[in-house]
Amino acid sequence: MKTIVITGGTDGMGAALARHYLTAGDRVTVIGRSRRKFDALVAAAASEDPSAVARAEFIAADLSLVADSRRVVNQLLAHHKRIDALVLAASFIRQHRQTTAEGHEASWALFFLSKYLLVTGLAPLLRAVEQPVIVNTAVPGTRADAVDFEDLEMVQGFTFMRSNAQQRRANELLGILATDDNPNLAYLTWGPAWLVRSSFAGEVGKGMRITAAVLGRLLGQRPEAAIRPIIRLIDDPSPGRAAYRGATQHTLTVGDRDEKDATRLAAAIEESLR
């Protein structure tokens, strides 16, 4: 029996993964904001395997809050001996700069700070298994210089495109830190090959929401289909870093200063979280 931890596990691909592994007989911890949605997915899994109820765990958290991310890490460390797979799939789209109650830029806090805290904080549980895997749903492939080290939270010049590129590159650098710490770890930055039908959570314009809903219905993949490549990667991991769009492996972005940038990023984050 594997232990699978999934952030954003009550919607879309995260929920589909949770249901898959519950029906496969594994232990699944879902981190999310909606207990109602979690109960619905567990009920669906239990209709196929009644034992799913005993193997499902829910941790309520808003991962845009550092305090919640830290609480999740502490709860998992206290109640788990191992984690076979950590899936980082929490998402909430913001087109404009917003700050959390803690003073952090909200998108940076959700899409990177929470992932940094989970990856580094849960490292002991991932080291407890022979073939651990992290699937980070940060679409691979952005500029090597996309991280603005002088203004990580983009107080100046925030745009959705800049913010998105920085998050994606930072998550690639996080993979360097994670695999340096644990050479047995498979760290995968992964994005779907095409649009996925989901609730499209976020603060976006009406036009974008309507367009996504229409295209999703007409052309989008069902979450159950979109996650098939993730399942294969979790079930048969290879140590090291890799990048995928769907089932297709992509070349990792390589810069002249990757190791130094990863170390610099970690130092900057530790300083910002003091």
Rank of each mutant, 00 (worst) to 15 (best):
V42P: 05
V129C: 10
S198W: 04
D181F: 09
G32R: 05
N182F: 05
M1I: 02
L126A: 08
H96N: 11
V129M: 12
L188F: 10
K206R: 12
A178L: 10
A243C: 09
P192F: 06
F200K: 10
H250L: 14
L118F: 14
A18I: 13
P239Y: 00
V87E: 01
A54H: 15
P183E: 09
A201L: 11
V5T: 00
D49A: 15
F111R: 03
P229R: 03
Q249C: 15
F160V: 05
D11Q: 12
R162E: 07
E270P: 03
A243D: 07
H96F: 08
H250S: 13
K2P: 06
P223F: 03
A54R: 14
Y244M: 05
Q249W: 15
F160P: 02
I83D: 07
E150Q: 12
G12Q: 02
A178P: 02
F112H: 14
S199L: 14
H80M: 14
R168G: 06
A123S: 11
S34Q: 12
G207M: 10
A247P: 15
I59C: 14
T251A: 07
L22N: 04
R169E: 03
L118S: 11
G141H: 12
L215T: 03
D26S: 13
R232N: 08
A146Q: 04
I59T: 14
P229D: 09
L125K: 04
A60Y: 01
V28M: 08
A52G: 11
A138D: 03
V155N: 13
